[in-house]
Every structure is written in structure tokens, then in C-alpha cells.
């Protein structure tokens, strides 16, 4: 019955799973439903069918979009820009590149896996340093109006500046590529962390503070038992935002600094005129971005009481 709607084999399996999970009373787990179990099921069939439709559409519609992009790509390639590789050429190239991601033929010829890990390492370092500085600073700003007055103008002026503008300063001060890139990521991450943390502290409901004063909590207890947990959702949101931007910025920064890294690799492949590599790099950067955001999402689930 539901086979009419579903064409993908994998989706069908997924549906069967949901079916059995939902109707434990009527079917043993793993046994496909059969027509003999009719009585209890007639009422359930309609909503199940609805749900299956939902699952199918969730899988099919993105797949359709993907096909559209491929069609557009092929069209542009044949009619407008023949220099572009075809989707199938790119796919072949991707398989080559991804077959040996961690090959190492000296510092100037590393596999894409290494490039990715170097970029991630810089992002993690800059992000971590920004958290160490930005979150405490945000707390101070949120708790003291005078510290807020002192810092806000500086933050407001520097926040709209592209972090890449700091790269020359980094190179000048650190006289090396790697710390400069980390410095740029640090600058990228610190503003959202400061501002979100400060906002979080200021958004704590007066009720919670009243509870604290009735209980006569000490400053330390107040910070540990109330300010910190109440602010955590804002802090994590700030971290999630800044990590997303950091991942965008590192690609650009590495294009400028050279050396190793996914951004450098992309630019290097452009110099080699290897356009399929560039497209592969774009896909890898995008997927890595999703994974990073997913990880922050999990952290948020874990730490953010509003998401539990």
C-alpha cells in the first residue's frame, strides 16, 4: 500500500522501523505487518500513511533539489562556461582525491585529510582562546555597568571589521603564518562570545536573583549556582555562532597565508587550474561546517536547560 509513495529502498526500511515501533501490540519487532492483523490496524493505517508520506517527502525533496543543481551545472557547463568540469568528471576526481586523504609527500604535497585537520586545528585553537578570554570578559561586562561602559565602544567599533583585516597585524606581531591564522580566528570568535555572554548575564530574571538573596547566597555561590547556569544557554549560542563564522574565515585566511590548510589547498588548486579540486574542496568545506555546527548543537542539547 505504501509502496506507491516510496521509491527509495532505504526509506522504505526506515518506515518499516517506525511502523513496528509504533504498533508493538500488534506486530513483533522486525516482522513486517501483514494483512491478517487487520482489526486493530484499520484505525492506525491513515496516520501511518501520513507519516510515511512525510518521511518520503523529507528525503525526496532535497534529492530533487540536488538533481536540479546538477542539471543547472550541466547546463552552464555546456552552454556558458565549457571550462567547468562536468558533474561526472568532478565525481571521478573526488574519488581520486578522497581515496588517499592522508598521503604525505613532503610539506608541499599533503593529502586533503591533512589540509582539513590543519584548518580545524587552527579553528579550535583560536576558538578556544577566544572562549577563555571572551566568556569571562562577557561575564564582567554583564555584572558591572562600569565595565560595560568601558568596553562597549571598543567592541562596537571592532566588531564590524572583517577579521581578515587583522591578518597583517598578526603576521607583523607573530612573524609566522600559523599563529597569525589562529589570531584571526580568535578575533572572529571573541565578539559574539563577549556580547552573548554579557546579554545572558543581563537577561537573568530578577526572580532568580531574589531567590539568591533570600537564601543569602555568597558571591561565589551566586555565580556558580545561578549566574553560570542561567547564562549558559546564551554562552553556548555565542560559541555556536562564532564557530560557524570561524570556519568561513579560516578558508579565506589560509588563502592569504598559504602553507597548509583547506583554504590554501583550494587556492593552490586554482593556481594549478584544477577546477574539479575546487568543487571538491567547496563540498568538503560545507560538509565540515555542518558537522561542526552539529557538534555545537549536541553541546547545546547537553548544556542548555531550555533545550532539554
Amino acid at each position: 500500500m505504501h509502496a506507491q509513495v516510496i521509491r527509495l529502498e532505504s526509506t522504505k526500511e526506515k518506515m518499516e522501523e517506525t511502523n513496528t515501533a509504533e504498533s508493538v501490540e500488534t506486530a513483533y519487532p522486525g516482522t513486517p505487518e501483514t494483512e491478517t492483523q487487520e482489526p486493530a490496524k484499520s484505525a492506525k493505517r491513515e496516520p501511518n500513511r501520513e507519516r510515511n508520506r512525510g518521511v518520503a517527502l523529507r528525503v525526496l525533496l532535497p534529492f530533487f533539489t540536488f538533481l536540479m543543481v546538477l542539471a543547472l551545472w550541466s547546463f552552464v557547463q555546456t552552454k556558458i562556461a565549457p571550462e567547468l568540469p562536468t558533474p561526472s568528471q568532478t565525481w571521478e576526481h573526488a574519488k581520486e582525491v578522497l581515496a588517499h586523504p592522508f598521503y604525505d609527500k613532503g610539506p608541499n604535497d599533503l593529502g586533503i585529510g591533512w589540509q582539513l585537520l590543519y584548518s580545524l586545528g587552527r579553528v579550535v585553537a583560536g576558538f578556544g582562546l577566544a572562549a577563555l578570554v571572551g566568556i569571562p570578559l562577557g561575564f564582567l561586562m554583564g555584572m558591572s555597568i562600569n565595565i560595560q561602559r568601558a568596553i562597549t565602544p571598543l567592541v562596537q567599533i571592532l566588531r564590524p571589521v572583517s577579521p581578515l583585516a587583522w591578518l597583517p597585524i598578526g603576521l607583523l606581531v607573530f612573524k609566522a603564518v600559523n599563529p597569525s591564522a589562529i589570531f584571526v580566528i580568535f578575533i572572529t570568535c571573541i565578539w559574539p562570545m563577549i556580547l552573548n555572554t554579557a546579554t545572558g548575564v543581563k537577561a537573568i530574571p530578577q526572580d532568580y536573583l531574589n531567590v539568591a538573596s533570600v537564601l543569602k547566597l555568597s558571591k561565589l555561590e551566586l555565580a556558580r549556582r545561578i549566574l553560570f547556569p542561567a547564562t549558559l544557554p546564551y554562552v553556548v549560542t555565542g560559541m555556536r555562532l562564532s564557530l560557524g563564522v570561524a570556519w568561513m574565515v579560516i578558508v579565506a585566511a589560509e588563502m592569504l597565508t598559504g602553507g597548509i590548510g583547506i583554504g590554501f589547498w583550494l587556492w593552490d588548486e586554482w593556481n594549478n587550474l584544477s577546477v574539479p579540486s575546487i568543487i571538491v574542496a567547496i563540498a568538503i568545506i560545507g560538509i565540515t561546517g555542518i558537522v561542526l555546527d552539529g557538534i555545537m548543537g549536541l553541546v547545546q542539547m547537553r548544556l542548555d536547560y531550555t533545550k532539554r
Binding site: 532568580y208 543569602k216 542561567a230
Partner: peptide
């Protein structure tokens, strides 16, 4: 002088700490 637990308050909107 100042708040204290010997004058416990039940707040209108419960004020339980959600975490």
C-alpha cells in the same frame, strides 16, 4: 535588614531554577 531565609518568600511565578 536585608533578605534572609527566616523570612522565606513564595514568589508569584514560583521562581524555581529551571536547570
Amino acid at each position: 535588614k536585608g533578605p534572609g531565609p527566616e523570612r522565606a518568600v513564595v514568589f508569584q511565578n514560583h521562581s524555581l531554577l529551571p536547570w
